[in-house]
Nucleic acid binder design. Sequence first.
DNA 1: TTTATTAACGTAACCGGTTACGTAAAAGTC
DNA 2: GACTTTTACGTAACCGGTTACGTTAATAAA
Lengths: 335, 335
Amino acid sequence: MTVTIMDVAERANVSKATVSRVLNDQGGYSEKTKRHVLKAIEELEYNPNAVARSLTNKKTHTIGIVLPDLISSLTTNFLNEIEAVAHKAGSSIIVCHTESKGAKTMKYLKLLHEKRVDGIILASTILQKEYYDYIEKTKIPIVLLSTDSEYPVSSVTADDYAAAYMATKYLIQQGHKKVGMISGNKEEWVAGNHLPRVEGFKTALLDHKLSANEDHVVYGRFSCEDGATGLTKLIGQVPGLTAIFTENDEIGMGVLSAAYQLGIKVPEDISVIGMDNVKFCEFLNPPLTSVSLSHSEMAEKAANLIFEMIESNKAVKKNYIVSHRVVERQSVNSL
Amino acid sequence: MTVTIMDVAERANVSKATVSRVLNDQGGYSEKTKRHVLKAIEELEYNPNAVARSLTNKKTHTIGIVLPDLISSLTTNFLNEIEAVAHKAGSSIIVCHTESKGAKTMKYLKLLHEKRVDGIILASTILQKEYYDYIEKTKIPIVLLSTDSEYPVSSVTADDYAAAYMATKYLIQQGHKKVGMISGNKEEWVAGNHLPRVEGFKTALLDHKLSANEDHVVYGRFSCEDGATGLTKLIGQVPGLTAIFTENDEIGMGVLSAAYQLGIKVPEDISVIGMDNVKFCEFLNPPLTSVSLSHSEMAEKAANLIFEMIESNKAVKKNYIVSHRVVERQSVNSL
DNA sequence: TTTATTAACGTAACCGGTTACGTAAAAGTC
DNA sequence: GACTTTTACGTAACCGGTTACGTTAATAAA
């Protein structure tokens, strides 16, 4: 049916070994036979079978990405960047979407191992002991993207604590004294990096001699809707509230939207700063000030790292922390 | 190194054929040997090699998705939905990002064939003759997602013409007489469905005895920035403009943002209707009225269709058109 | 001219599974 | 008890490549 290396060999009157050699530029054949082989390939429209090749080579030129439900622009950021790097490295990516369910993650890891991917990027997912053990056993190179871990594995992360601290400090420097935070789900196992964010927020407040207790933070999940409900809740909990730090831009967007509906003016009545500096920040009304975590950069680093690990098959382990900065727009007032 | 079916066979004192049989529940072995085999698998932590399996089975349980640069929420919509369906069908997805470059598309098609994917979903990409010929030759099942084609291939699309017509008619019915459109790039080969959108727009105008010439349409690319520049341009080109139809929500978002910056009130001064009904519409200020194209539904249908085609390996060809409707929010005023 | 070296291949084993076919033992039939 | 059928396997070929090794012919060296 489909044409194989054997067909090419026969038509070119050589052995399949020779065909394989010219295919891989390995030398060991004359110019003339090379031409013959190439001609046969051309005529038969031969397309090598990567599956067969992978079997002997023990390399699939495929890496797996597993990620939970994320803000769409984050997912896209990650995926785009990783895919671009992978493509340059001559590899493809299999994406696995875990829907925030732990069980599915383990299933996916097994699946990816079955498919013999060359490496795995695990994004925004806490590395459970179970996962770690499995990865250790299978020896698949792995890098964590946007999560740290207690286990010795490569990772590319942002310093969430410091970033949150910076966001909060920025608000304080603009003169705000009553500031609240809207966070993701307390129990949420995804991302797993909101606790540092809450800590950074509180510490910044405390460091500047401002009060900071649990009333100052409101928990939701990770979406726009939470911004809306969070806003009213927060206003109730902290009297005289003038500024809000939202754990991510999507929540920030929700706050902006809710404020608009409630007739609360941003930034005149209340200032908002988000986090992630996602693309749409610029186009919100008002444009959302946000602390940039350069997700693209993270993803790119993670992708490069995984290929580095794959190539030098020594067990290199590296941990990168990308920088952050606040990008000022118009959602924060100075008092 | 890694444990193979042979290792299992030896430990269980059977042939690898038998191991394979119990692995695939094929019968032809006693309960006792089954237990032995299972025990050996357990003890050795055997994990079958999908690559080897694919080689004989001629099935990789992998499908390829190729898509160009899209609005991130669209991409995510597509990917999520397709991945979910694929996962249920026991398959994985390889995503290929063409960055709106035609050359890359062909490369990806070849790559996917090399990797012997079971099927391909080609999203928002015009099916060039070259692609079609290649697909025909390789006999890979393919379905087009969000693009039609002159060639006989399966597809799941929206009726862009009708949807644009509906959007425009909606504006007219709200009393608008001077309405303009901001479209994507005229020459853009991606999406390929903006021409019908422009046509739908113009026809709706004409059908209601309103003027519609090329001045009423402004072309950009597909992003927020185009909304911003498009707005000022359009205001210049059509005097007395009261409403704008944007080819997609991202442009719509850009218009909203630009209007805010320019002090133009939406919808009081100018009404805006978008297209796609992407998630963030609800959270814009004001919330953006948009005609819903149910992309999730499209993606799901496309995914189901591709697996249907893969299973019944007859060359089934089906063409679905999903419905559309305008979802009213607050960006359109009635005069 | 004879011998050593190298170039240009072919042969066959291997990667890790699946499966058609053959066979011995167990079970069923008369 | 002899014969047929069924069960429970093992053997070996196969999927489509890669590669170690062996062989022959051409070329270089002596």
